[in-house]
């Protein structure tokens, strides 16, 4: 079969350079990255159109449209600044601290929540039209990403406007953390969207898992507190290590270090230097990229049967 394929390919190459030979066999397809990325690239218009469609559908019929999405961080900043001023919170400039991690978490959680249903919800397309199925979960991540970018722009704009500013020594962690968050989001979304085709209760499971996961990630509370609390326990060192296996913990700690620098930041932020965090994020990026490869392979192998399973 491979021999026949090579011959066909050579023949195709000599006669018509554009004519790619596509083979469909009974074997679940094996992911050949370079080939697949090229295929996805040729379908980028579909991805863009789907993202545009989702955004349009999401905001048509509402008066303020995309403003709703932008209001989110504004209201959060206002409410949490007010609440922590009135009630007194141990974390100074709490709203700045909270949103640093929360926006990235929302990108992750929204992508997973809607991504789980992305293939199932588009069953009419999957059954009737050929296109690389990865487009569907990627489109949900794309929609969440647009929201994330808009909200981050508002958030970063507001903290600059109110004179909070950035510290050059820290802020370069920001892109590293975003890359890690994005790759991890895509990887997990691939997995949940393909699993949900076979087992529809995946989407409920995801809801619960995200709730637990949210509280296992230092978004609303300080990572330093976790560290000091655990340090007093005999099993604390091990628990702390397990706590750090969570890629989202590194993303959030990185973002907080990049953007939050109040007077007593050291009492709040994770007990790692910038360099340590950078290394941690690079390791996380390597790990989630490997994970992406695995979940992509799984998704790709399963995608051949989506039309049948739906």
């Amino acid at each position: 079969m491979t021999c026949a394929f090579r011959r066909a390919h050579a023949e195709g190459a000599t006669i018509a350079a554009t004519a790619d030979v596509i083979e469909r066999t009974s074997e679940p397809p094996r992911l050949r990255l370079r080939h697949r990325v090229r295929e996805l690239w040729s379908y980028r218009e579909v991805l863009l159109n789907l993202v545009r469609k989702e955004l349009k559908v999401k905001y048509t019929g509402s008066v303020l449209g995309a403003i709703w999405s932008l209001l989110n961080p504004v209201v959060f900043l206002a409410v949490f600044t007010f609440v922590s001023k009135v009630l007194g919170n141990s974390i100074q400039d709490y709203a700045v601290f909270l949103l640093a991690g929360l926006l990235a978490w929302n990108l992750f959680a929204v992508s997973l929540g809607t991504g789980a249903q992305s293939v199932v919800a588009n069953s009419n397309l999957v059954k009737k039209v050929y296109f690389p199925r990865e487009i569907l979960p990627l489109a949900t991540v794309g929609v969440a990403l647009v929201d994330f970018v808009l909200q981050s722009a508002v958030y970063l704009g507001i903290i600059t406007l109110f004179g909070y500013g950035f510290v050059l020594a820290f802020v370069w962690l920001y892109p590293l953390a975003i890359v890690a968050a994005l790759v991890f989001t895509v990887a997990v979304t691939f997995w949940v969207s393909s699993m949900n085709v076979r087992y529809r209760d995946m989407q409920h499971l995801i809801g619960l898992a995200l709730l637990v996961w949210f509280w296992l990630t230092p978004i609303v509370y300080s990572a330093r507190t976790v560290y000091t609390t655990l340090a007093e326990k005999s099993w604390g060192a091990l628990a702390w290590r397990i706590y750090l296996l969570n890629p989202m913990a590194w993303v959030v700690m990185g973002l907080q270090r990049a953007l939050y620098h109040s007077a007593d930041a050291e009492k709040v932020l994770a007990p790692f230097s910038v360099g340590h965090l950078a290394v941690g994020l690079l390791v996380a990026i390597a790990a989630v990229t490997a994970l992406l490869y695995l979940t992509w392979r799984l998704f790709f192998a399963m995608s051949g049967d989506f039309a049948e399973e739906l």
Binding site: M1, F5, A8, G12, A16, T18, A19, D20, V21, I22, E23, R24, T25, S26, P28, P29, N122, N124, L125, V126, K127, K128, V129, Y130, G304, D305, A307, E308
Partner: peptide, 24 residues
């Protein structure tokens, strides 16, 4: 859109399938 259970399909060139009008 469907994967064969046995055998092999080889296809050359850009393909458009009109299996349903206005799909999507």
């Amino acid at each position: 859109i469907l994967r064969p259970s046995e055998g092999l399909v080889r296809q050359r060139g850009r393909l458009a399938g009109l299996l349903e009008l206005g799909a999507g």
